[in-house]
């Protein structure tokens, strides 16, 4: 990064921040084994790096208990050809990933119950945005950043606020969030993230061809994207999570002051402390604002 100002950044240079879902609970039940998945991803990263010599790739692991940078192409110093089996950056990345998983496991307190738990998407999104902000401030010329979420874990409604904040921050800094979701159901969070930031949301149907999806849809730089016809999502699940119980709801109560969302009527807004009048609440509860239980 220190050498950045000397580089001549054209409009087709990208900074790709990949958020890698390493939730062990998801991968142990996924139809696509992690080993296959990572080899697809590594090939894709290599492709991206080779598309332009100034292209930059940052990989952030989205773990179950923590998140961390596991690869940054700008700081990778030795560009040696690596071992015979794979490029050097791949073995570096795998090494880091291994360490990360070990650390993630150590942080595991073992308190989770039922179903597949979600991974810390909000954390990795924030880290990605921080990194991008740093790039923005490095000088007038910088690669065009974009975020690619390779995600499989289900949405964690408890992260709703954090994720939405990250999404809006990305929207403000014009960073598209692409998402490739390999889980079973569509992810409402990622759908919204891509929709709001103008990225591409894709749920590959043929998981064995993941590399093909990645290289066809996500490899092009933002400048070239304007002339491409990329898949559009037909529908977006816009449902929000309530702030009180972190449940995904279809209908709920909105604080008239700070727009916080609640699944049931409260006397006082837990976010901004506004006190709701009793008379109004009576009217509200009988008329238009009905609560529907989440499905």
């Amino acid at each position: 990064m220190a050498s950045a100002p000397s580089k001549l950044y054209a409009d087709d240079v990208s900074l790709l921040v990949v958020l890698l879902d390493t939730n062990p609970f998801f991968w142990s039940s996924s139809p696509l084994p992690f080993s296959k998945f990572i080899s697809h991803v590594l090939a894709f990263l290599n492709t991206t790096l080779r598309l332009h010599q100034l292209n930059q790739v940052v990989v952030i692991a989205t773990g179950y208990n923590c998140c961390d940078y596991i690869y940054d192409s700008s700081s990778a110093t030795n560009q040696s050809s690596g071992t015979g089996m794979m490029p050097a950056f791949c073995s570096n990345l795998l090494e880091k990933l291994d360490k990360f998983v070990t650390r993630d496991e150590q942080l595991e307190k073992g308190g989770q119950e039922g179903g597949i738990a979600s991974s810390l998407l909000s954390g990795s999104l924030s880290m990605a945005l921080c990194y991008i902000q740093r790039i923005f401030r490095s000088g007038p010329l910088h690669p065009h950043p974009r975020i690619l979420c390779l995600h499989g874990s289900p949405d964690g409604p408890e992260q709703y606020v954090a994720i939405m904040n990250a999404i809006f921050s990305a929207q403000r800094s014009m960073v598209p969030i692409d998402s490739c979701y390999i889980g079973a159901q569509n992810s409402a969070f990622l759908q919204q993230a891509s929709y709001i930031t103008g990225g591409v949301y894709l749920k590959p149907q043929i998981l064995d061809g993941l590399f093909q999806y990645l290289s066809t849809v996500y490899a092009t730089d933002l400048h070239s994207r304007g002339s491409l016809q990329l898949p559009k999502s037909v529908g977006v699940d816009f449902r929000a999570s309530c702030f009180c119980h972190k449940r995904t709801i279809d209908m709920g109560y909105i604080c008239s002051v700070c727009l916080s969302i609640f699944c049931m009527h409260h006397k006082k807004c837990s976010t901004c402390g506004s006190v709701f009048g009793q008379a109004q609440s009576d009217v509200a509860s009988t008329s238009n604002k009905r609560k529907t239980p989440d499905t």
Binding site: P24, W27, S39, M85, S91, L94, D98
Partner: peptide, 14 residues
């Protein structure tokens, strides 16, 4: 299992 997957890739390669 996740770690096993990673080491598998590491040993087998792409």
């Amino acid at each position: 299992s996740l770690r096993k997957c990673i080491s598998e890739v590491k040993s087998v390669g792409l």
